[in-house]
């Protein structure tokens, strides 16, 4: 077994919090004591698998995330056992090299991995992709997001200071998990062909945009483009940076009813989310662009990312004319993996 066992006087949340605090563990909130019985119950949701198999080795600490260690953190966060397959798959996704987890954890930027749950598991485990999806009130969203953060802190070592240099931190670093609202998605979704999947996108907290009036896709998406075109975002000088556009169902329906695909949305935003090249050059010396972007003359407009492929679209939320865009940290790529059954 790869997981240490500790002695504690009682299983009250206060006792666990006190013990964990002395060791630099925890996110500051009360935690459920990870007793062997609770952890075994969580592991049972994964079926007949090796609980001590190393799923991923997570930097910067290079901690080994076994299913048991992941289950311990799930219990701490109050995660229902039915959410364990999502959490294990999310950890597997975080270890993909294109995520660049070492950078995500260690940067001064406030980036946090957003976990998006798609498909059957979202419905079976009770994740919320509808009204208030990014907000409080749903246990699977809140606790899975929190458990993933605890894995990052405990296993990866992303503790503010020694392993997480984020200048201001951010609320998305507490819990950042939603479901994709596939029933309200007029397109094929983030994980076509997969019964259940998780997507990891390492980015900022959602930037809201609203349009209560338009029946025209371009007018709606111009608000999104406006939110994207900001000198303060990392992506302005990092060509590989992604944007994740979280369309509310009403905006998505309006856009799709005009015959637009997600590719059309991405192409339009690539064209419209731009800043003057002169202004960018005047403000930055550290620029990670490919040669063609360096060749864009002063006086022309520069796209906020190097390709429409870097703009991803999904649907979540409930009634209302609000959507959001989530700029990435920059030197990271989103990944989608199937949920481990």
């Amino acid at each position: 077994m790869s997981t240490d066992v500790l002695e504690i006087a009682d299983d009250s949340p206060e006792a666990v919090l006190a013990l964990y605090e002395t060791r630099g563990w925890g996110d500051g909130l009360p935690m459920v004591p990870p007793t062997p019985a609770r952890v075994d119950a969580a592991l049972a949701a994964l079926g007949d698998v090796d609980p001590d198999e190393v799923i991923a080795t997570l930097p910067p600490r290079l901690g080994e995330a076994t299913r048991r260690v992941i289950a311990v953190n799930a219990v701490l966060a109050g995660c229902p056992p039915a959410c364990l397959p999502v959490l294990v798959s999310a950890v597997r996704a975080l270890a993909r090299p294109e995520v660049n987890l070492r950078g995500v954890n260690a940067t001064t930027h406030p980036v946090a991995p957003l976990l998006i749950v798609s498909g059957e598991i979202a419905e079976q485990a009770g994740y919320n992709g509808g009204l208030g999806a990014f907000g409080p009130g749903n246990r699977p969203n809140a606790t899975t997001g929190r458990a993933l953060r605890l894995v990052l802190m405990h296993v990866a070592g992303a503790v503010p200071g020694p392993g997480d240099a984020s200048t201001q931190g951010g609320p998305a670093k507490y819990a950042y998990c939603v479901a994709e609202h596939l029933a309200a998605t007029p397109w094929e979704g983030l994980a076509p062909g997969l019964a259940s999947a998780v997507t990891i996108h390492c980015g900022e907290a959602p930037h809201n945009f609203h349009d209560m009036e338009s029946g025209d896709p371009g007018r709606i998406l111009d608000k999104c483009a406006s939110a994207m075109a900001s000198l303060g975002q990392n992506n302005v000088v990092i060509a590989q940076g992604e944007y994740l556009v979280a369309l509310g169902p009403e905006h998505a329906a309006t856009i799709a009813s005009a015959g637009w695909t997600t590719r059309d949305v991405a192409s339009y935003l690539f064209e419209r989310a731009r800043l003057p090249a002169t202004e960018i050059r005047a403000n930055f010396t550290s620029i990670a662009w490919p040669p063609w972007m360096h060749a864009v003359p002063d006086g022309e407009l520069m796209p906020m990312t190097g390709s429409p492929d870097n703009i991803k679209v999904f649907v979540c939320g409930g009634a209302g004319k609000h959507s959001s865009v989530i700029p990435s940290w920059g030197m990271t790529k989103s990944v989608t993996v199937p949920v481990e059954s």
Binding site: S2, T3, D4, V5, L6, E7, I8, A9, D10, D11, V16, L19, Y20, R23, W25, P33, P34, T35, P36, V39, V54, T57, R61, L62, G63, E64, A65, T66, R68, V69, V72, N73, L76, L150, H154, V155
Partner: peptide
């Protein structure tokens, strides 16, 4: 009573 530690072992650098 017993509870688990949440951090796991440290792996070998690649």
């Amino acid at each position: 009573m017993k509870i688990y530690a949440p951090d796991g072992r440290i792996g070998v650098p690649p």
